[in-house]
Design a binder for these strands. Structure first.
Lengths: 109, 109
DNA sequence: TTCTTATTTGGCTAAACTTGCAAATAAGCA
DNA sequence: TGCTTATTTGCAAGTTTAGCCAAATAAGAA
């Protein structure tokens, strides 16, 4: 890979990295359903320390996957991506297929 | 998140983690174009040590994103996912949008 | 201003990921 | 059998990430 190509794939990888954590995927799902949520909502949903959730949210924000708006003392996050559900479908397909393969291996032995 | 829900998102996150590296994304792209490639092909493409590339391939294999076939002394990898191009389109959209936002910020200041 | 609530950030530790080199396998060839 | 090629695996070092607690901000409310 030359420099330019590498940069392209690094940029893409950043997006995948941002999504590569169960808590962050859960957040994106919640934001697909609820339009917007405050940090407190998401903290309760995830069940970790609020500081941890806040850090997850900043990862998503840096990747450009969510937008932030502060109203009063609360901070609201919303998704900026509409095509994520397609991701999920594809991922679920892969997982289903993996499970099928596992089954096949079990039956074979 | 309860245990079951957590497990679901962890499984999904595994897939994203597997894709969250420039070399592995490059490999998936190559396998989308070429149907199959040996480790030597991919090693040349990526430009790292063959052992490193082999490790990347095993990450993709464990995630169920590629399949392996050994013929003679060579090992061929092929993609098992057809819906990945949709991923890429979506990711590129996000990146384009991020770039636009960056521009907006620059103009504003 | 002082107190309270919501959120972010600093600091630290533990765990996970990446990479190259060297050694181990595995398969074909002489 | 002994040699060469293709690939994987063990190991060690360096880098990144995740998580929690405590401290810092920021905005309302008293």
């Amino acid at each position: 890979m030359n420099k330019k190509e590498l940069a392209k794939y690094e940029a893409r990888a950043q997006i995948f990295k941002a999504l590569a954590h169960p808590a962050r995927l859960r957040v994106m799902d919640a934001l697909a359903q609820h339009k917007e949520q405050c940090v407190c909502d998401l903290t309760e949903l995830i069940g970790s320390d609020m500081s941890t959730v806040s850090r997850h949210l900043s990862v998503l924000k840096n990747a450009g996957l969510v937008a932030v708006e502060k109203r009063g003392q609360m901070v609201f996050y919303r998704s900026t991506v509409c095509c994520l559900s397609g991701f999920t479908d594809c991922v679920e397909k892969v997982l289903a297929n993996n499970a099928k393969q596992q089954q096949a291996v079990l039956h074979a032995s």
